[in-house]
């Protein structure tokens, strides 16, 4: 029990490099992975390491990035949200549903002014997040199950809205942010960067952010410290849904269409980005900085695999293996840290 190896009596100064590195494994490992992957693809393909391609990678991870902001809050609280992709999908479809479509689109929709369409779409995703929050905190359904149900519910609403059709038009603000660019930089990258920055600022500099870390670090202690744990958990579920909704609206504009099952791959990608980045699945450790590294790892991997000549079916398997390795590192880093703390 009492490990005198690190000699706490001698103070914290003479700790040495090894224990420090061990306690920082969670942050170092993803970074090394990123450098390794980048170097590998740069070596394997001359078209990979170019400014143009960097722009591609940034654009490709933007929608995931927006969704991952909210998910980072959830995972920091040691909860999970499996409904993010479905909520993104239904919000994207909703904003198109409330926009006037071309006459050949055969959806009985309700055209409204752009601002109203956006407002209704945001309200929809916030409401779905609130249902998640109530299920988790008031009824006490584990978030894994609650959001699994929500995944199906949101998919169901999507299906009812588009009825197998495809809508194309979204309000002009959304279409600019999703597919326009300014000074050569795509708006979607700027929006993702702003959302990530905002998430980071909230987590690091606000009282709420501190509560998120403390609830994730030790939920029982948070309760015994007189924090309203349920309120905090509820809030992160709503934040997650709203971020997903924003990602969904931008995504629809970016892809140029709104249809069923359009975001299915974003569930795994967003969870992978957060976890690969090193945010602890047990809560309390990590943050937006980690998520950004995770996004780049994922972006470089997806993009790089397109640059090297590889069976496109094998790509799926490779992504799975990388995710597994990241999970192993995540769990292992937690253990190392706990050992370092003792």
């Amino acid at each position: 029990m009492a490990s005198s190896e690190t000699a706490p009596a001698a103070g914290q100064r003479g700790k040495g490099l090894a224990p420090f590195l061990r306690s920082q494994m969670r942050n170092i490992a993803p970074f090394l992975t990123l450098i390794f992957l980048s170097a590998f693809f740069a070596f394997a393909s001359p078209s990979f390491a170019t400014i143009d391609n960097l722009g591609n990678i940034l654009t490709q991870v933007s929608v995931t990035g927006v969704i991952a902001v909210g998910l980072t809050f959830v995972i920091l609280c040691a909860e999970i949200d499996l409904s993010i992709a479905s909520i993104a999908n239904v919000t994207g479809i909703a904003v198109a549903y409330f926009t006037l479509q071309e006459s050949y689109v055969n959806i009985p929709n309700i055209p409204l002014p752009g601002a109203a369409a956006i407002l209704l779409a945001v309200l929809l995703c916030a409401a779905l997040g609130l249902v998640n929050a109530l299920g988790l905190t008031v009824i006490g359904i584990p978030s894994f199950i609650m959001t699994l149900a929500m995944m199906q519910i949101a998919a169901g609403i999507s299906a009812l809205l588009v009825r197998g059709q495809i809508a194309y038009k979204v309000p002009s603000l959304i279409s600019t942010l999703g597919s326009g660019s300014i000074g050569g930089i795509p708006w979607i990258v700027i929006v993702a960067a702003i959302m990530l920055l905002a998430g980071h600022l909230v987590l690091t500099y606000t009282r709420f952010g501190r509560y998120v870390y403390m609830v994730g670090g030790n939920r029982e202690a948070a309760e015994y410290s007189g924090l309203n744990v349920k309120l905090i958990l509820g809030a992160v579920m709503v934040i997650s849904a709203v971020c997903s909704g924003v990602g969904g609206m931008l995504g629809v504009a970016h892809f140029g269409s709104a249809q069923q099952n359009e975001f299915d791959t974003y569930l795994l990608d967003s969870i992978a980005a957060v976890v690969v980045g090193g945010t602890s699945l047990f809560g309390g450790r990590g943050g937006i900085g980690n998520t950004i590294v995770g996004l780049f790892v994922l972006g470089v991997l997806n993009n790089g695999l397109d640059h090297v000549n590889i069976d496109s079916f094998l790509k799926i398997l490779i992504r799975g293996v990388i995710l597994l390795v990241a999970l192993i590192i995540n769990v292992y880093a937690q253990r190392l840290r706990e050992q370092a703390a003792e």
Partner: peptide, 28 residues
Amino acid sequence: RRAMLFHQEPVFKNISISILDRISSLLL
């Protein structure tokens, strides 16, 4: 003690957690 303290957080965060709303409204 395990039920009431955050072992992986610094001492000052453990001491301030119950009074954060008295010293800061939004920003820490």
